[in-house]
Nucleic acid binder design. Structure first.
Lengths: 341, 341
DNA sequence: AGATACTACGAAACCGTTTTCGTGTTAATA
DNA sequence: TATTAACACGAAAACGGTTTCGTAGTATCT
């Protein structure tokens, strides 16, 4: 077992000082050609690689970024993560992932674990609990320490930092508008608890589209479901008790699930009821009928988040008045069979 | 912006030495009650937290583990990752993830990035390209340096290290046997290129089950599909040209895809053809009919991998002759509608 | 009173780098 | 020949901790 070799070893072996070795490996012109050759050859022979930790300590830069997401087994977050990882790697950064599991406490613990030198900056999406509690002190502490932070998708106005969001309102408007253009008028919205900022935006787009088309809002056509543990009966009743010809769902699971329930009740999709869901995941592509969805372009969101974070990390020098950006990713409507008639 | 406070700051402020501060914070009984109180109060007031990087350098332990997986947007790997992250966090470790994207080169680069001090050990699953090339020098180098390594699922005999695998052969046997017990005899296998160790095992289980039931092997009933970019025609022809009443697919996408194609051709599932797939992902739960699958218990696999890795990391002291373990996770057959008749 | 033993703390080494600054040697210049 | 400049290198500090060891001062014991 050949242990890692250090500058000290090389120095001792070659009977020069550590500083000389360090400089020689960096091709400093303070060092003679001869010495450089000797050192470089030796280093290559023994496969010397500088110790990242030591460099991090010296530079106060880890080249690691911390990502905290509510859930990893979830298509949207997974694609965002993939975008982050891809971009970060390209710029020589590694990614440390923590999963908050939608829990406020875990989010706090994870941030604290990472905030003590392990990472140069955070990319995160708020947990459900954090949004419900409306408590962002852990984020404040981090930003006050000067650690760059980028929030994506589930963001909050309470924190000043860079953000990357989806044009949720506009795309929901567009989706509902497309229903109306196709001659549908009894349009339902299936959403989550309102503390999700994205749900609020999507609901707003839904309402605006209806109003713009002179359709009255009808509270009966809006149903709020828990994030998990869907109640079959509640959904079934919703379809039975209301006269509905189109449904916008704020996520993919809701859409697939509700579409399934509606079909079970005898409704034809899209003839009787059309469906559009958010998140263009794998379920939408393989469902029957294939589901029309809002593609959130998680990859792009992740890449952009990583770019914004790394740029800020690397330019923290310019202590100009910090001016934060909020970038908007344009969602697109992927039309499939659940809306064609 | 309050910058991070260090031992040095506290020492200077309280007019004691750095060593005293360090010991006081660790409640050393070398330090008087008075001094300890003073230091601890001050530290709490200014929210002192030791710098992880400095500790890592000193201890030669980062409390980070590196995870390299071929793909993150893939249910099985995602659940394994979740298991790893959950367990690792419980033991105070963070997880750095790199995605090899099924590429040999990326796998190598990622390993090298992490092997220079960033992590205490690796958990990985081989990329398709690595398995095809059969080149494992990057793994050898890492293990020779004494960095613990755990391989899961896609493993190789070429490398001596801890491993966590699925009882692929046995569960494939069980699946095929269940087809036969249900009266089916014309059983197809839809698999991937044979350099995947798991595909080989599954094929073996398939064959053994047939032979054990006195059914002759028929090469026509075994089809090899590329990992992505499925060819509709090829699959359609497969069902048209052969007389098939049951299909075992080595992954979920193949299963869903092929089941869809078969239905499109007019076959009834499960009446005409029954399907079983590997990976109990979200597709299987929402498909029509719902798909019978082999649950690989990725979470458990991840947890076990992390446990084995961390145990080894923390016991590297006991330089006993290294004896490596290969643990087997028992897959289970989740029976759903695609096999009930 | 002198030897001994605690107590409470500080100096310094160490982890593995980078980087500044100082210096001995040689070569070029006045 | 004395001065200066260039060259090639090493010592040491620094990053932020931990830990070993040495010691001044006081308390205890004979």
């Amino acid at each position: 077992m050949k242990r890692k070799i250090t500058l000290k070893h090389i120095a001792r072996e070659l009977e020069v000082s550590i500083s000389t070795v360090s400089k020689a490996l960096k091709n400093s012109d303070e060092i003679s050609r001869d010495t450089k050759d000797k050192v470089q050859a030796f280093a290559k022979l023994y496969n010397y690689k500088p110790n990242n930790i030591a460099i991090s300590l010296k530079n106060k830069r880890t080249k690691n970024i911390g990502v905290i997401i509510p859930d990893i087994v979830h298509h949207f977050f997974t694609t965002v993560f993939r975008g982050i990882e891809k971009y970060a790697n390209k710029r020589g950064y590694n990614v440390i992932v923590c999963v908050s599991d939608e829990s406020f406490d875990k989010e706090v613990i994870n941030m604290e674990m990472l905030a003590n030198g392990s990472i140069d900056g955070f990319i995160m999406s708020l947990s459900a609990e954090t949004q419900a509690k409306n408590d962002f002190n852990h984020l404040k502490e981090v930003t006050e320490q000067g650690i760059p932070l980028v929030l994506f998708d589930r963001v909050t106005d309470e924190i000043l930092c860079d953000k990357v969001i989806l044009n949720d309102r506009e795309i929901a408007y567009e989706a509902v508008d497309s229903f109306i253009k196709a001659g549908r008028k009894k349009i339902a919205l299936i959403t989550t608890e309102s503390y999700f900022n994205v749900s609020i935006s999507r609901a707003k787009g839904y309402e605006e589209a209806l109003l713009a088309n002179n359709i009255d809002l009808n509270d009966d056509l809006v149903i709020v479901l828990p994030y998990d543990n869907l109640d079959e009966k509640q959904i079934g009743d919703f379809f039975k008790d209301n006269d509905i010809d189109a449904v916008l769902c704020v996520n993919e699971i809701f859409a697939i699930h509700c579409m399934g329930m509606a079909q079970k009740l005898g409704f034809k999709v899209p003839e009787d009821i059309a469906f559009i869901g958010f998140t263009d995941g794998i379920l939408s592509k393989y469902s029957k009928p294939r589901l029309t969805t809002v593609a959130q372009h998680g990859d792009k969101m992740g890449e952009l988040s990583a770019e914004m974070l790394i740029d800020r990390v690397e330019n923290e020098s310019e202590e100009t008045e910090e001016v934060f950006r909020t970038e908007v990713i344009e969602a697109t409507l992927i039309k499939r069979e659940s809306t064609i008639n």
